[in-house]
Amino acid sequence: MNAALLHRLRAELDERRATTGLRRDLVVSGAQGPALGVGGEWLVNFASNDYLGLAGDPEVLDAARRALRETGLGVAAGRVLCGTRAVHGELEAGIAELVGAEDAVLYTSCFDANLGLFDALLGPQDVVLSDALNHASLIDGIRLSRARRRVFAHGDLDELERHLTEFAGARHRLIVTDGVFSMDGDVAALPRLCELAERHDAVLVVDDSHATGVLGTTGGGTAEHFGLKGRVDVLTGTLGKALGGAAGGFVAGDRALVETLRQVSRPYIFTNAMAPALAGAALAAIRIARRRPDLRERLAANTAWLRRALHDLGYEVPPGEHPIIPVMLRGGTLALDVAAALRREGVLAFALSHPVVPAGEERIRVQVSAAHTAGQLERAAAAFGRARAVLAGS
Rank of each mutant, 00 (worst) to 15 (best):
R298G: 09
C194G: 00
L215H: 02
A275K: 15
V44N: 01
G141T: 10
A77V: 09
A349F: 14
A284L: 02
A211L: 06
G33K: 10
A256H: 03
G237T: 13
V38D: 08
I175T: 08
L129M: 12
G219N: 07
A247G: 02
I139R: 14
L190R: 00
L235F: 11
V80I: 11
L144M: 11
E41D: 14
A242R: 05
D158N: 15
V44Y: 03
P124D: 14
L6V: 13
G227I: 08
Y107P: 11
A282Y: 00
A370Y: 08
E316V: 08
G116I: 12
G314S: 11
V205S: 07
R69Q: 13
L54F: 08
T333G: 09
G227P: 06
D140T: 15
S130D: 02
V368K: 14
L391T: 07
A392Y: 07
A351R: 02
A301W: 04
V27W: 14
L157M: 11
V390T: 01
A113R: 01
D62Q: 14
E321K: 07
A252P: 12
D178L: 05
A63D: 00
F46P: 00
E159V: 12
R291K: 05
N272R: 15
R292V: 07
L5C: 12
P293T: 13
A273I: 01
A211Y: 10
G314K: 04
P319F: 04
R10C: 11
D178K: 09
A383N: 13
A211N: 04
N2C: 03
G314D: 07
Q32K: 09
A3K: 12
L310S: 00
A101S: 13
L160P: 03
R173D: 01
D294H: 15
A104Y: 02
G33A: 13
S145V: 15
D62L: 10
L243H: 07
K229E: 07
G40N: 14
H210V: 08
R69T: 13
G100F: 14
R287A: 12
T218E: 09
R171S: 10
A246M: 02
A359W: 12
H135K: 06
T212A: 10
A104K: 06
V27L: 14
A300M: 12
E90R: 12
